[in-house]
């Protein structure tokens, strides 16, 4: 089958599925979260996968999105749709400014710098109580079901809005991948020095990708805030909760591929939710522990992700049958 047939089939399934589920039930919540984190992984994939710039700080942009729209909503009664754009613009600006000191950095150094950036925003969010609510976090005021205010009692509308966001980010990813920018990013990934020599403006290429990725991540931050109605600094600026999760979702499935974050999210998010529901009362931290162990295991077994692992497995099976 051609890849686009897979894509179309998955999309049709995604559109149809909610009609079989209870709109206030648990399964659709898990599915919605899965789509949200798939989208987050895909946004990370634009810098982490295509350019191989390992960001450990995407929570910075996610949190900027969540806080910007929510603060605008609380204080100025501004629609989250506009707040979302404001958050995306702010995140893009932050990514642009951050890129000046970090663009020359590679590998470990880049990861260090991005992680430190998001940590500092977390600390600012925890201490600037008058604006951010401090460690206690912020609640999104609920008035009534309203598309303009992006709030609903039922989960189904969120599901479709977040599905829309996921499709949007996947399309952006595909367009970048197939465009000149995508080829330049790949050149940067394979050999930055050689790319520079043949005339690729590597700094500009990386900044463009970083800004796009940051803006998309901020959109998701707003959607997350509207969906959960409540968040605190740890939930949106957390290293493990957001930054590491975004990266792992992409890496587990296969970084740099369109399908990677989708596969990663559909493995990790339901598993985590299931573990939380089944174990949390007995031992806090157990599902996170499993999460960490899975991460170590996938890196040691096949760092290129499940996609490669599965296709290698199939290839080996076929070979075995012939022989």
């Amino acid at each position: 089958m051609k890849p686009w047939i897979w894509g179309a089939a998955a999309l049709i399934a995604a559109v149809v599925v909610p009609s079989f589920l209870d709109p206030a039930g648990y399964p659709i919540r898990v599915l919605t979260l899965t789509l949200l984190f798939a989208a987050l992984g895909q946004a990370w994939n634009i810098v982490g996968g295509l350019a191989n710039q390992i960001s450990l700080g995407h929570a910075a942009f996610f949190g900027i999105g969540a806080y910007t729209s929510t603060i605008l909503l609380i204080h100025f009664n501004l629609s989250p749709w506009i707040g979302m754009l404001a958050g995306a613009a702010l995140a893009a600006l932050a990514a642009y400014l951050l890129s000046f000191p970090t663009m020359k950095l590679r590998g470990h150094y880049f990861a260090l710098a991005t992680l430190a950036f998001s940590e500092v925003l977390r600390v600012v969010a925890s201490s600037w109580t008058s604006v951010t609510g401090g460690p206690a976090g912020l609640s999104v005021p609920y008035a009534a079901d309203s598309l303009a205010l992006l709030q609903f009692k039922s989960t189904t509308p969120y599901y479709y809005i977040i599905l829309g966001a996921l499709v949007l980010i996947c399309v952006v990813f595909l367009v970048i991948q197939k465009s000149a920018l995508g080829y330049r990013l790949r050149a940067v990934k394979e050999n930055p020095d050689a790319a520079e020599v043949i005339g690729v403006d590597t700094t500009r290429v990386k900044i463009t990708a970083a800004v796009i990725s940051a803006a998309l991540t901020a959109l998701l931050g707003t959607l997350y805030a509207q969906f959960t109605y409540f968040f605190d600094p740890e939930a949106v600026f957390g290293i493990v909760a957001i930054s590491v999760r975004a990266a792992i979702i992409a890496i587990l499935g296969g970084a740099g591929t369109l399908a990677g974050p989708l596969i990663g999210a559909f493995v990790i998010v339901p598993l985590e939710e299931f573990a939380n529901a089944a174990l949390s009362s007995r031992a806090a931290g157990l599902s996170q522990l499993v999460f960490g162990l899975m991460l170590i295991a996938i890196i040691l077994v096949e760092p290129r992700g499940l996609l490669v692992l599965v296709s290698n497995g199939i290839a080996r099976l076929r070979k075995g049958r012939k022989g």
Binding site: A283, G285, G292, I299
Partner: peptide
């Protein structure tokens, strides 16, 4: 096992270790 692996593997193996140790001590 990751000494000769690309940076992404080295970074995430220690990040995984961070998550494991933190939650083991929590448990």
């Amino acid at each position: 096992r990751v000494l000769n692996a690309p940076p992404v593997a080295q970074i995430f193996v220690t990040v995984g270790l961070l998550i494991v140790i933190e939650n083991l001590s929590l448990i």
